[in-house]
Design a protein around this nucleic acid. Structure first.
Lengths: 222, 222
DNA sequence: TTGTATTTTATGGAAATCCGTAATTCGTAT
DNA sequence: ATACGAATTACGGATTTCCATAAAATACAA
């Protein structure tokens, strides 16, 4: 079982809840970090001191405030931590239920568990910690486990997301092309961009561009 | 100070946090409700039993799950509760920081306080409870107090919101007009709708319709 | 009633997008 | 080198939105 745990979470109440959960599992050696940057620094320090953490529990969304930050969200944090300390176990603990985003956490950062905050998340979190602490299995909250299975045959690539973002900023197609040309993005003709948007509209069953942006915003893609 | 408190909050951890906060203020008579419906029923029951609550602390967003619910969010709950028991004190406790939505809570349901969940929200919540429990003043978390002041001279009316919603559904302008005519909405010519959209784009500094919908979605207007 | 201001509606041309088709380029296997 | 298929690009017309101007309807005061 885990000996040393770090928690990255900005909401004070939730920190209390996680703390109680850990104590109930007889884990007493844990630290909090209210900013991703702090969590990362602590993890690095612990490695240098030869007393590394063996579990990171992190939220995904962190509030912005006056403080200037480097790492803005849990998604970035887990990627960097996985790179820094490949053997650490990571549990994402979040209200986020958009499967696209969750899936990318497993794909990109190879997290070990995802627990959905909710009406009985404490029990879920305990299960996750137990499972991950005693085996190499992954834990996923039951509410989203099924939704995570369904894989869309069509893969939305990086360029798609860039286009969607530009559209949401109100950039007209002509300008999008120019931006891509300046950035040196490979396919950058008007035709291709039009075709990609058309494909996206088809895929998301959107009536027009406005609808498309609305849908993808709701899904958390952009 | 408060004698009997009800908490409407679905996240288990936050319930723990609020519970500790209340205990630290020597308030021990409190109940939890994880669904708005339950909170409303408890409040009504308490009135019938002649032991009404004198404070409601409620979240704004509640997760959907298998259970069929009547009241889906805190906004609806506070309105109904205010109607049912006008003298109860209400504190909204939420991560929501869109001032439009918060303002409408004060306007429509005349809530007594708004506390923003965050890195030191427990202290804020204590202050709010103390202030509201001993006076008739309103409490607003400092982070948003200033933003709440600024009132936009241009008022976005109901028709504007309907148009924005239709746009976000991908309804073309021609169809929007038809829908309005069928619904018997008063100004329903193509020109008027076009002009209203144009005004909205102007007001929100949007480059085009897609941008407009993106902005208003971010602001929580639609 | 008359005149005036505001709101609503009508109209038309410019701009942007939508969408199908055809030409070109590129990678790869033979 | 050649041939083939897939991806990219080019082009053109249909549709929609955009935008400015003008006409019509409405409200209201003198």
């Amino acid at each position: 079982m885990f000996k040393k745990v770090i928690i990255a979470e900005d909401l004070e109440d939730i920190n209390l809840g996680i703390e109680q959960t850990l104590k109930s599992l007889d884990i007493v050696n844990f630290q909090h970090a209210k900013y991703c940057d702090d969590a990362f620094l602590k993890i690095r320090k612990a490695i240098q001191d030869n007393e590394p953490y063996d579990l990171l529990i992190t939220d995904l969304s962190f509030k912005k405030d006056h403080r200037e930050v480097n790492i803005t969200c849990g998604d970035e944090l887990v990627e960097k931590v996985r790179e820094l300390q490949p053997n650490i176990k990571i549990i994402a603990y979040s209200v986020e239920d958009k499967n696209i985003r969750i899936k990318s956490l497993f794909d990109k950062a190879d997290i070990n568990g995802f627990v959905l905050k909710g009406r009985n998340s404490i029990e879920d979190l305990k299960k996750a910690i137990n499972l991950i602490g005693t085996s190499d299995q992954k834990y996923i909250s039951p509410e989203i486990a099924s939704a995570l299975q369904e894989k869309s045959n069509y893969e939305i690539d990086d360029l798609d997301i860039q286009i969607l973002k530009q559209l949401s900023y109100g950039t007209p197609q002509d300008e999008i092309i120019q931006i891509f040309k300046e950035m040196g993005v490979k396919p950058n003709s008007k035709s291709t961009v039009e075709k990609k948007i058309s494909k996206l509209k088809d895929f998301f069953k959107a009536n027009n561009t406005t609808h498309l942006v609305s849908i993808t915003k709701d899904m958390g893609i952009i």
